[in-house]
């Protein structure tokens, strides 16, 4: 008699599955309550990433357009992928008369970055920070190479590295 009990058992199991999907269908059809997807471009303005989200590496600037990078190049040395390049220049400090480094360009190759965060950890002056932006798509690789220090920015006065 297993022939008939098989049929009955099988049909029962199929109906159990249909009940579950059916439940979700009617709930969503009537109330949209269980919809788990986001309507992405629509919620672009309200979409807030978590504070710790690792979107990209940024060089923090304060309101006077000053950053904290003293061009020590620790980040460049520590990066496993070579995605950071620090270009610096020498100048003579008028007060002490010693040679000092000054940041010219802090170049960031986003296309090579794996977001491991080592550069941010090792930075002795806490100049680098995580940015939350994730809209990185572009038509051109070149656009992913960024200069992190803003034009005309200076190093914060009295920075000790």
């Amino acid at each position: 008699m297993s022939y008939f009990s098989d049929i009955i058992q099988g049909t029962k199991s199929l109906l159990t599955g249909m009940r579950i999907t059916g439940n979700y269908f009617f709930k969503n059809f009537l109330t949209r309550k269980d919809v788990i997807t986001q309507q992405y471009p629509d919620n672009k303005d309200t979409l807030k990433m978590f504070d710790r989200f690792r979107g990209e590496v940024t060089l923090a600037h304060n309101e006077n357009n000053e950053h904290r990078c003293d061009a020590c190049t620790t980040c460049e040395k520590t990066c496993p992928n070579g995605s950071l390049e620090v270009i610096w220049d020498k100048y003579k400090d008028p007060e002490t008369g010693r040679n000092k480094r000054v940041l010219v360009k802090h170049i960031y190759h986003l296309e090579m970055c794996t977001m491991c965060g080592l550069c941010i950890e090792v930075c002795p002056t806490n100049a680098l920070e995580w940015g939350q932006d994730f809209h990185h798509a572009s038509y051109d690789r070149g656009q992913l190479t960024k200069v992190l220090n803003k034009p005309g920015s200076k190093v914060v006065a009295g920075l000790k590295g």
Partner: peptide
């Protein structure tokens, strides 16, 4: 994402503990 900062490649462990 909230604790580690990423959803898939968390990279949360560091030698000697966890990152955050």
């Amino acid at each position: 994402e909230e604790t580690c900062g990423a959803r898939l490649t968390m990279n949360y462990n560091v030698i000697g503990g966890v990152r955050y």
